[in-house]
């Protein structure tokens, strides 16, 4: 199995890694909300939030290159939705180009909105990368359960997490087998092959699910799962949350 892309750095040890998952989840959410609520144009506020994140990322000992790479995940969406905004937004014109047939103009308002969105979504993705790279999913799920997510849903998620590795492996093997048999031909043929792959994967997964369930029944499963994992909310968590909330509130109070 080669799935080091899943949960890659959650085993590191740092101050951030040791925080309670609930603390990390709630402070991340608070940071995201603070960033989203800040209107575009308040560059000083964004700079402060960036500095807070940068300090936290440095503390977490995550490789910086990895954090940067992960943060690029927003690019496709930006390209699809945001990139045209400067051309369409009404307002004072910054650059204009007339080709005779049509008029292309970029407005200051449009540029402002686009930069605002780019900065906001980049700051938020940094915070999400930090949260998810510093927390093991099992801990996170336990934290979410404490925060009130339904028990059944948490159980499904933890089973899913266990079998992602197995099924992703199966899917990758199928893809390799397909590619080594010179996958080509016309469009219809390609879709039929992918359909057959996914269908086979479905039937195998379904039968695997049945086997897992029967095996669990044989071991006394009655719909209840008890976890040994216990979360510990330490004083450090309270101090950290308090400090972060104050730091988040300061910039808007100073510059709005």
């Amino acid at each position: 199995m080669k799935h080091d892309f899943i949960d890659k750095y959650s085993n590191l040890d740092s101050f951030i890694h040791r925080l309670d998952p609930r603390t990390k989840f709630l402070t991340s959410l608070a940071l995201t909300i603070a960033v989203v609520l800040t209107p575009a144009g308040n560059w000083k506020v964004f700079l402060c939030y960036f500095l807070i994140l940068a300090v936290l990322i440095l503390f977490s000992r995550l490789p910086l290159l990895y954090v940067m790479k992960r943060s690029l995940v927003i690019i496709p969406f930006v390209l699809m939705v945001a990139i045209f905004i400067p051309f369409f937004k009404q307002g004072q014109i910054a650059v204009s180009y007339n080709s005779g047939l049509f008029q292309l103009s970029i407005t200051y308002d449009g540029i402002l909105i686009l930069t605002g969105i780019l900065i906001k979504s980049w700051l938020c993705i940094l915070s999400l990368v930090l949260l998810t790279s510093c927390t093991k999913l099992a801990d996170m799920l336990e934290g979410l359960k404490q925060l009130g997510v339904p028990h059944v849903f948490i159980l499904i998620l933890s089973f899913m997490y266990r079998y992602i590795f197995v099924l992703a492996d199966q899917a990758m093997r199928m893809q390799q087998a397909r590619d080594s048999r010179n996958f080509g031909g016309n469009y219809w043929h390609k879709f039929k092959i992918i359909g057959n792959m996914i269908g086979t994967l479905f039937i195998r997964s379904y039968e695997r699910g049945e086997r897992v369930y029967v095996a669990m029944l044989a071991r006394g499963y009655n719909g209840e799962v008890s976890a040994i994992r216990k979360l510990h909310y330490a004083p450090a968590d309270a101090y950290f949350s308090l400090l972060l909330f104050i730091l988040l509130l300061c910039p808007p109070l100073l510059w709005w």
Binding site: R162, I164, L167, Q170, L201, S205, G209, V212, G223
Partner: peptide
């Protein structure tokens, strides 16, 4: 629950 977990993993893999 185990079945739904496995099937969610299936959708993910697909």
């Amino acid at each position: 629950v185990p079945m739904m977990g496995v099937l969610a993993a299936f959708i993910f893999a697909a």
